[in-house]
Amino acid sequence: MRLTEKSQVTVPKAVRERLGIGPGSDVDFVAEGDGVRLVKLDDAARKRSAVEDWLRSASGSGNGRLTTEDIMDETRGPFDDLDLR
């Protein structure tokens, strides 16, 4: 199998059928030893994957750790809209 100029490959029909995937299916590549495994993502796995991707990207600044306040700001917006009369 050869990668295209855009680093794409065609998943063989037998593999697509075995995984039950087709156009629009969500899949992931899982590193294992010297290779990778193609896995079909279900709804829960897609949500976990999205959260993990966000956490990896968000941890690129500072010490790499998010505080509870950082997470709350990211999910709800900053806590600065209160009228503290």
Score class of each variant (00 low, 15 high):
residue 1 M to T: 11
residue 2 R to Q: 12
residue 3 L to E: 06
residue 3 L to V: 12
residue 4 T to H: 03
residue 5 E to T: 13
residue 5 E to F: 09
residue 6 K to G: 08
residue 6 K to R: 15
residue 6 K to D: 15
residue 7 S to Q: 14
residue 7 S to G: 11
residue 8 Q to N: 12
residue 9 V to M: 11
residue 9 V to K: 03
residue 9 V to P: 02
residue 11 V to G: 00
residue 11 V to Q: 00
residue 12 P to F: 05
residue 13 K to N: 08
residue 13 K to I: 14
residue 13 K to Y: 10
residue 14 A to P: 03
residue 14 A to D: 11
residue 14 A to T: 13
residue 15 V to W: 09
residue 15 V to C: 07
residue 15 V to F: 12
residue 18 R to C: 08
residue 19 L to S: 01
residue 19 L to N: 00
residue 20 G to N: 03
residue 20 G to T: 05
residue 20 G to C: 04
residue 20 G to E: 02
residue 21 I to Y: 01
residue 21 I to E: 00
residue 21 I to V: 15
residue 23 P to F: 11
residue 24 G to K: 07
residue 24 G to Q: 10
residue 25 S to D: 05
residue 25 S to V: 06
residue 25 S to K: 02
residue 26 D to A: 15
residue 26 D to F: 15
residue 26 D to K: 12
residue 28 D to L: 09
residue 29 F to H: 04
residue 30 V to C: 04
residue 32 E to I: 14
residue 32 E to H: 08
residue 34 D to I: 12
residue 37 R to T: 14
residue 37 R to H: 11
residue 37 R to D: 08
residue 38 L to H: 01
residue 38 L to S: 01
residue 38 L to D: 01
residue 39 V to A: 02
residue 39 V to S: 00
residue 40 K to S: 08
residue 40 K to M: 08
residue 40 K to T: 06
residue 42 D to K: 05
residue 43 D to F: 12
residue 44 A to F: 15
residue 45 A to C: 07
residue 45 A to W: 01
residue 47 K to H: 15
residue 47 K to L: 14
residue 48 R to L: 14
residue 48 R to W: 13
residue 48 R to G: 09
residue 49 S to T: 14
residue 50 A to M: 10
residue 51 V to A: 12
residue 52 E to D: 15
residue 52 E to H: 13
residue 52 E to Q: 14
residue 53 D to C: 07
residue 54 W to G: 00
residue 54 W to E: 01
residue 54 W to H: 01
residue 55 L to R: 04
residue 56 R to C: 12
residue 58 A to Y: 01
residue 58 A to C: 06
residue 59 S to G: 15
residue 59 S to P: 04
residue 59 S to T: 12
residue 60 G to Y: 01
residue 60 G to E: 09
residue 60 G to Q: 10
residue 60 G to T: 09
residue 60 G to A: 08
residue 60 G to F: 03
residue 61 S to K: 09
residue 62 G to K: 02
residue 62 G to C: 04
residue 63 N to P: 04
residue 64 G to R: 01
residue 64 G to Y: 04
residue 65 R to I: 09
residue 67 T to Y: 04
residue 68 T to F: 08
residue 68 T to G: 10
residue 68 T to R: 05
residue 68 T to S: 05
residue 69 E to V: 10
residue 69 E to Q: 10
residue 71 I to N: 00
residue 73 D to N: 13
residue 73 D to P: 00
residue 74 E to M: 11
residue 75 T to P: 00
residue 75 T to Q: 05
residue 75 T to Y: 10
residue 76 R to V: 02
residue 76 R to L: 11
residue 76 R to Y: 08
residue 77 G to P: 02
residue 77 G to L: 02
residue 79 F to M: 06
residue 80 D to Y: 03
residue 81 D to E: 12
residue 81 D to P: 01
residue 82 L to C: 06
residue 82 L to G: 06
residue 82 L to K: 05
residue 83 D to F: 13
residue 84 L to I: 13
residue 84 L to C: 05
